[in-house]
Amino acid sequence: MPSEATELVSVDSPVTGYRIILPDDWTRLPLRHGTEDAVRRILDEALSRVPFRASTGQASDFTRQLESRFRGVVAEARRSGALDLYLPVRKTGTVNLGASLVVSETLLPRRGESDAGDPTDVAVRLLSRDGSRNADLSSGELDGAVAVRREHVVPADAGRGAELASRRVEYLASVPGDAARWFLAAFSTVGGGRPDDELADALVEWFDAVMATFRWRRG
Rank of each mutant, 00 (worst) to 15 (best):
P2H: 06
P2G: 05
T6A: 02
S10H: 10
S13E: 07
P14K: 11
G17P: 08
R19A: 11
I21D: 13
D24I: 07
T27I: 08
P30F: 02
L31V: 02
L31D: 03
G34T: 01
T35Y: 12
E36I: 09
E36Q: 15
D37M: 06
L43N: 06
L47R: 10
R49P: 00
S55L: 15
T56E: 15
G57Q: 12
A59Y: 02
T63E: 14
Q65N: 12
Q65L: 14
S68D: 13
R69S: 15
V74E: 07
S80C: 01
G81N: 09
G81S: 07
A82E: 06
D84R: 05
R90P: 00
T92D: 15
V95H: 09
V95G: 08
V95S: 09
L97W: 04
L97N: 04
A99F: 01
S100L: 14
R110S: 12
R111G: 07
S114E: 15
D118L: 10
P119H: 11
T120Q: 11
V122K: 03
V122C: 01
V124K: 09
R125L: 09
L126Y: 03
L127C: 04
S128N: 09
R129A: 14
G131T: 08
N134S: 09
A135Q: 09
D136C: 01
G140T: 05
L142V: 09
G144K: 13
A145Y: 11
V148Y: 05
R149K: 13
R149A: 07
E151Q: 03
H152K: 04
V153C: 04
A158Y: 05
A165T: 00
S166R: 11
S166F: 01
R167S: 08
R168A: 06
V169G: 00
E170N: 00
A173V: 03
A173H: 03
A173L: 05
V175A: 12
P176C: 05
G177V: 04
W182E: 03
F183K: 04
F183Y: 14
T189Y: 07
G192P: 01
E198I: 00
E198Y: 01
E198D: 14
A202W: 00
A202E: 08
V204E: 08
F207L: 01
A209Q: 13
V210D: 01
V210P: 01
M211L: 15
M211N: 02
T213P: 10
R217H: 10
R217T: 13
R218H: 14
R218C: 08
